[in-house]
Simulated scan of single mutants.
Amino acid sequence: MVTHAPVGDGEFDRSTVVTRRETVENAAGENTAREGVYDADLSPDWTVANVLNGGYLLAVLGRALADALPHPDPFALSAHYLSPSVPGPAVIRTQTVRAGRTLATGQASLFQTGEDGREVERIRVLGSYGDLAALPDDVRTSATPPVLPPPERCVSPDDGPPPPGDFALAGRLSLRLDPATVGWALGEPSGRGEVRAWFDFADGRAPDPVSLLLTVDALPPTAFDLGLLGWAPTVELTAHIRCRPAPGPLRVAIMTRNLAGGFLEEDAEVWDSADRLVCQSRQLARAPRA
């Protein structure tokens, strides 16, 4: 019997839907592993320069794990991008590694058919899930929200000339970039390796834990602010979801402190309309060639 993972009504939800095909119980000694198989149709609407966005792909796998595990919300996900994913059919295989009362851990891999007709693994994810609504309210932090001008005083991607290639992702989002971090668009990068922006969906969809997996990877690469324009493919991305975001636009701040050997790290913070730090991430990416 085919069932569907719960989704909402927004464009993001429709583009990340996964369909559960089967569930198998594999017993090994005293441990029992639950394995699931899901079908997905990766949408070309979430590409950057004709390449599927890494955050979008993580959200697709995150939705499969949310269906496969006994707890609803992603707490921590770590993804390794093994080969470029392309729009079209994909198969996701999940496995429950451990299921506890408050946390469950699982892994998921996304596969597509290669040019030679063989199955190719594109991404492998390890994630822990729980119930964000059950967490205590105490917060002790030295982190502060990024200071951004009001959205009407920020820069939309539509304010400049269209970039080369197909940036379909930009049409799905409402991004307002901090003018202090877009000097690269005028040929004057600051060299600080910082990008800040207001983030919202173009159709007004409210943020939720799964959509935060897209948010951390949806801004222009920090390499642009270092004067390196071009594709910066993600090698590994880890996201920590701290709480369910309040409705309204999100503030996102991303920075890099070290580019060496052709790779750079990006640290992201996502803050909601209630001034709460709702998500943090770090990724390793290949730096664009100068």
Rank of each mutant, 00 (worst) to 15 (best):
M1Y: 05
V2C: 03
A5T: 11
G8H: 02
G10Y: 00
D13A: 15
S15F: 03
V17Q: 15
T19F: 05
R20P: 06
G29A: 13
V37D: 04
Y38V: 10
L42V: 14
T47D: 00
V51H: 09
L52S: 11
G55D: 00
L61G: 14
L69H: 04
P70Y: 02
H71Y: 02
D73H: 15
A76H: 08
H80P: 03
S83T: 12
S83R: 11
V86E: 15
G88M: 07
I92H: 01
Q95N: 12
Q95M: 14
Q95K: 12
T102H: 15
G106V: 03
Q107H: 11
L110S: 11
T113P: 07
E121D: 11
R122P: 06
L126K: 05
S128A: 15
G130R: 00
D131H: 05
L132M: 10
P136M: 08
P136C: 11
T141K: 07
S142E: 12
A143Y: 05
P145G: 09
V147G: 03
P150W: 00
R153N: 06
R153P: 01
C154I: 02
C154K: 09
V155W: 03
P157W: 06
P157N: 06
P161D: 13
L169D: 01
A170L: 15
G171F: 08
R172H: 04
L173I: 09
A180L: 10
T181E: 05
G183N: 09
W184K: 00
A185C: 02
V195N: 06
R196M: 08
D203Y: 04
A206N: 07
P207D: 03
P209T: 09
L212D: 10
L213F: 07
L213A: 11
V216W: 05
T222W: 00
L229C: 08
A232D: 08
A232F: 04
T234L: 05
H240A: 12
C243N: 08
C243K: 14
R244I: 10
G248K: 05
P249T: 10
P249Y: 11
R257H: 15
E266K: 04
V278W: 04
C279Q: 06
L284R: 06
R286E: 00
R286S: 08
P288F: 01
